[in-house]
Design a protein around this nucleic acid. Sequence first.
DNA 1: ATAGGGTTAG
Length: 539
Amino acid sequence: MVSSASTASLLLPLPSCSSSEESDDGKPLPPLTAQEASSPPPSQLKRRRGRLERDYNVAMKALALSGDVDEVLAVFAELRRSLADAGDGGAAPNVLCYNTLVNALAEAGRTEEALRALDEMLASGVAPNASSHNILIKMHARRSEFDLAWELIHKSEMEPDAATYSTLIAGLCRVGKVAEAWGVLDWMLEKNCLPMVHTYTPIVQAYCREGRIEEAKLLMVEMERLGCLPNVVTYNVLIRALCDSGRFDEVEQILVDSRTKDWNPSTVTYNIYMNGLCKKGKTKEALEQLDVMLGEGMDPTAYTLSILLNCLCHDSRLLDAIYLLERSTELKWHAGVVAYNTVMSRLCEMGKWMSILKLLTDMIKKGIEPNTRTFNILIHSLCVVGKFSLAKSLIQSEGFAADVVTYNTLLHWSYHCGKLTGANRLISAMEEKNIALDEVTYTIIIDGLCREGKFDAATGYFLKSLKIGLSMDVLTVLLNRLACADRIWEIHRIFDEKDFIPDHLVFNLTIRTLCRASYCHYRDFYKLNLILDKMLERK
DNA sequence: ATAGGGTTAG
């Protein structure tokens, strides 16, 4: 279990609020007066409680917004302690605080902990409200448990509102089930529940993700017709899609039009635009947008800085990037862990190990805590400069939760250094620590084993990988290796496996791979025939 | 006062 929830809630201090920009207004609570401390009247006690909960909730939300879930946990624990000390028998925090906590955990993908927090809330006798209900539905939707979500909506006494349906629609759209999303929309209309921007925006986003930009635009026109005006979020979704396909003229047009429409671009809008320009190599234009944004009186956020640094790094202006990073505090630009990670990973690609170390010490000095990604970059760069053993020993470091990326990095370099037993030990360690192997892991293992001539073992890992679903990337790597090494019996073994369900894409890939490996030559043609037969058996 | 849109690692 990676969860540092319990330890974090015991050990971490109150939020200093220095890391998050929004929470500076969280004034310290006034100290108890002597009278309050001895035996405050119940009404005053209640007021104090309310104030305490509100202030803590504000802080928790700010932290959740800046993605600092562990801090949210810490603040919640602190709140619980304060309430216990406040004198009325250790009453639990109210629903709103619990909702903030559960939602922050759910957003961070820490579903188990979110569910535990929810259980704890119920056990403390705190009654859930409509929001708690919606958050739970969102969790089910995120895990693609739509049946459960639907069941919850029906059997609950809570009357589903537009937010409930919108949550479900968003979940469906996330996994590309747009038709089902429309189905829910129809259902809510039947129930006389009026859709809102939150209902349509996920559908617009789903269209955008599939590259159906024109349909997305049409839907936005339809929204206007229905009096459900697209807002800044809807436009941001569209702008991102336009950026991804390089349609910057249209982005400009939308920004111009915004002045006569009912929405205003936000910092996020410019972040999206700048990042889009940067990804298409238009550094100069991206920096121009920064000026536009500052001219509009908008403050850059931690995101803005990371995007700009990324931009500079891609333009190989590393010295500028490092300079900006070092000066960020005096410029009042918020450098966060992502900003440092961005620059460090670029330095890593260039093998500048000493510079990475310097940035690492800088960030720690500034009180910015390195996260798992920071460690992964560190480990990767150690591998690049040939310090593999040192890199490997870093997994044991205190306070660092190695994840699948960490292990993938180490695995890749184990094979690279020819350390097969070491690689096997790493795989066992993953299993012990319940870190699930992903597509990348299997690709690395299969490629590594094949390079050592261990085709049988590699094929075995491929068959194992089917448990997490067929990945064309993994299959491509294996087929290439097997074909080049003329290991047709292993290819047979793949097609014999009953868990392997080949479709036309698989057939296509197999035949193309074999032909490229010169199986079309007349002397080898019989082998191709054998495999074709095998494939047709499975049809 | 629950929700949505933006950045980094293999």
